[in-house]
């Protein structure tokens, strides 16, 4: 019935009420119980609210609608609806090969140990480019798109492993010597500049 957001809002509300009580009626903090209440209200609960807030923002940043809420990402969002199976992101998104509500994150997340942190740093840089400097056109991924992001899901999958083309170049794919998306195989990706000229898929409501 109550989601994590409702719990967080309730926690913030409770913390505000307790802080107001302690800060504006300091007489209640004279006893041991009052001191514990003050410590809880002015330190423990705010620290919990900060941690929960960071977690909520991190979760939200994985959502597709969050990624495409920047104007410069609009066409990349539209490309998920292109009615052409050769468009790799569209084929993954429309057929739920990746979760539709976190489609960008599924293919662009850094799956290494500190990947989430690295992703957030890159995200902050992009926010800076969007609102302070100027986003590059076309938008390029620093260091290029890594095969590991495809292999995170496809490696071990029967259709991928038994594909004759994949079998012959498996080592090169794993080492990244041959790119999945820029070696003439799966090279129709977002194609954001031409997305407005494409036929679009309209999902049934």
């Amino acid at each position: 019935m109550f989601g994590p957001s409702a719990l967080l809002y309730a926690l913030i509300g409770l913390t505000i009420v307790l802080i107001a009580t302690v800060a504006f009626r300091p007489a209640i903090t004279t006893g041991a119980a009052g001191k514990i209440l003050a410590f809880t209200a002015l330190f423990l609960l705010p620290a919990l609210c900060v941690a929960a807030g960071v977690s909520a923002h991190m979760e939200r940043s994985h959502e597709t609608r969050f990624c495409i809420s920047c104007h410069s990402m609009e066409n990349y969002g539209k490309s998920l609806y292109v009615d052409d199976p050769h468009y790799i992101p569209a084929a993954h998104f429309q057929n739920h090969r990746v979760p539709a509500d976190s489609a960008c994150n599924a293919c662009h997340a850094d799956y290494s140990v500190y990947g989430n942190l690295k992703d957030k740093m890159v995200g902050m840089k992009r926010v800076y480019m969007q609102f302070v400097s100027k986003p590059p056109n076309p938008i390029r991924i620093e260091g290029g798109f890594k095969n590991n992001q495809c292999l995170h899901c496809h490696l071990g999958a029967r259709s991928f492993e038994e594909g004759p083309t994949h079998q012959t170049m498996m080592d090169s794919l794993k080492s990244g010597d041959v790119s999945c998306i820029s070696s003439g195989c799966h090279d129709t990706v977002h194609n954001a500049a031409q997305v407005d000229q494409q036929k679009m898929w309209r999902p049934a409501q």
Partner: peptide
């Protein structure tokens, strides 16, 4: 306590 309380409440409202 008042300064601390006001700062934290403002921070929570921003959150």
């Amino acid at each position: 306590l008042q300064v601390s309380g006001i700062l934290i409440i403002l921070g929570l409202v921003v959150e």
